[in-house]
């Protein structure tokens, strides 16, 4: 296992920060990659190995703006893997959702309930920069 697993966000896949020394895991942004399985497999492997030698407490953050059902399943698998490999170690899970995005809140509650893990739910302003109606980076029409 590498100490760190860092993946930059793209237009259709989330940013990932997994840091063994800090005991910190964060997945954020949009997740609707063409192949969710290949995207999430390295994450499952990393977290399983991490719990062989974890920090006293592991902070896990989910900050999704959107995800598709194929990703939903991989997130379910990721949290299941955490639950199965954490043993008696402590974790703190934060689930961020955008204000008004009741679906995302509901989805977080679903994971928490089914897996019987405490989630802290945190409301934020924006998790998808594209949603603020700016056309930045897009060709500007010449006058």
């Amino acid at each position: 296992m590498n100490n760190q697993l860092i993946i930059k966000k793209t237009e259709d896949s989330p940013a990932v920060i997994m840091d063994a020394e800090k005991g910190y895991v964060c997945i954020s942004g949009i997740s609707w990659p063409e192949d969710a399985l290949s995207f999430y497999n390295p994450l499952h492997d990393w977290i399983r190995e991490y719990f062989n030698n974890p920090q006293k407490i592991t902070n896990i953050e989910f900050k999704f703006a959107y995800f598709n059902t194929a990703s939903a399943k991989q997130i379910a698998k990721f949290i299941t893997t955490i639950k199965e490999s954490m043993k008696d170690n402590k974790i703190a899970v934060k689930w961020f959702y955008e204000k008004e995005d009741s679906e995302m809140l509901k989805t977080g509650k679903r994971y928490a309930n089914i897996l019987n893990i405490d989630f802290e739910f945190i409301e934020t302003e924006r998790q998808d920069e594209d949603d603020n109606n700016s056309a930045e980076g897009v060709y500007k029409i010449q006058k």
Binding site: E34, D35, T69, A72, K73, K77, R110
Partner: peptide
């Protein structure tokens, strides 16, 4: 939906059932 979501035997990138329920 929950049953399908946690059924990791159906674990391919082409998962279809969930999309329709969603």
């Amino acid at each position: 939906y929950n049953e399908r979501l946690f059924d990791f035997r159906i674990n391919t990138s082409k998962e279809a059932g969930l999309g329709l329920i969603e």
